[in-house]
């Protein structure tokens, strides 16, 4: 996507939004105009920045921790057939529990601070990262297994020198998904119980009928998600290029 295309898409969205406001004649406390939202954003810029910082940190730490845990689990599963047999059904079953339903429990266990939001983010991205990377690790070309076996490689060294580098593009695919899910985890955590963060700010603004501020926080959250998606996309591209020797 080129910068010009992004700018055109943003202008189109703003035009549609403005058209909806004008055509429906909705009052500003139901659907504020883009200009009103921008004014609210500017007026509350410090408040929004402070809360965006909190959400950004939660998302980033959750993403890093979830990736490390997910990648380590995938490697563990690929190294041990027994662990794979025991853990894989458990992992798939864990997906039947909606993570959102756990949010109140997590708040109870980890408190109203950042901890519960980071855990929520980790939980929401753990499965896509583990699943994608594990799939990549299992798909190492059979020829490499043969070569490594004749060279006297241990299971771990095969994993380290061949399977992991070869599976980096698959890890990149998991990371791309994680980048989309991670902000959802943090914001849901903030909705359930928090005193800081963009999710908290949105609830607060909604409760006080400051819909323009709520929209402003929502737009900042969307920008944060897009920035994260682009950043992680670049990282995933690098992993892929490395694995292909480009």
């Amino acid at each position: 996507m080129r910068g010009r295309d992004i700018l055109a898409a943003v202008l189109l969205a703003l035009a549609l939004w403005q058209a909806a406001v004008t055509l429906t004649g909705a009052p500003h406390f139901i659907l504020p105009s883009p200009l009103r939202v921008m004014q609210a954003a500017w007026a509350s810029r410090v408040l929004i920045a402070q809360n965006a910082w909190v959400t950004g940190i939660e998302v980033l730490l959750g993403l890093i921790l979830g990736t490390v845990l997910g990648a380590a689990t995938a490697i563990g599963l690929a190294l041990s057939k027994r662990a794979e047999r025991l853990m894989l059904p458990l992992l798939v079953f864990s997906q039947a529990v909606p993570v959102f339903a756990l949010a109140p429990l997590l708040t109870l266990w980890f408190g109203y601070g950042m901890g519960s939001k980071i855990v929520m983010t980790v939980l929401i991205i753990f499965f896509p990262v583990t699943s994608a990377f594990h799939d990549g690790l299992r798909r190492a070309a059979p020829g490499y297994h043969d070569l490594a076996a004749t060279m006297g490689a241990s299971r771990w060294r095969f994993m380290r020198h061949i399977a992991i580098p070869q599976a980096l593009p698959a890890l990149g695919t998991g990371l791309r998904l994680a980048a989309v899910y991670a902000p959802i985890g943090a914001v849901i955590g903030e909705w359930v119980g928090a005193s800081r963060g963009l999710g908290y700010l949105m609830l607060l603004a909604n409760g006080r009928a400051k819909i323009d501020l709520m929209f402003a926080a929502l737009i900042v959250l969307a920008c944060l998600t897009v920035a994260l998606h682009l950043g992680v996309g670049k990282l995933a591209d690098r992993l892929s290029r490395y694995a292909h020797g480009d």
């Binding site: 070309a141 020829g143 490499y144 043969d146 070569l147 004749t150 060279m151 020198h161 061949i162 580098p165 070869q166 490395y242 694995a243 292909h244 020797g245």
Partner: peptide, 13 residues
């Protein structure tokens, strides 16, 4: 024993 296959099996990275 060492082994050489039809595919060169060079590691691209």
């Amino acid at each position: 024993v060492s082994y050489m296959a039809q595919s060169d099996l060079l590691l691209p990275w």
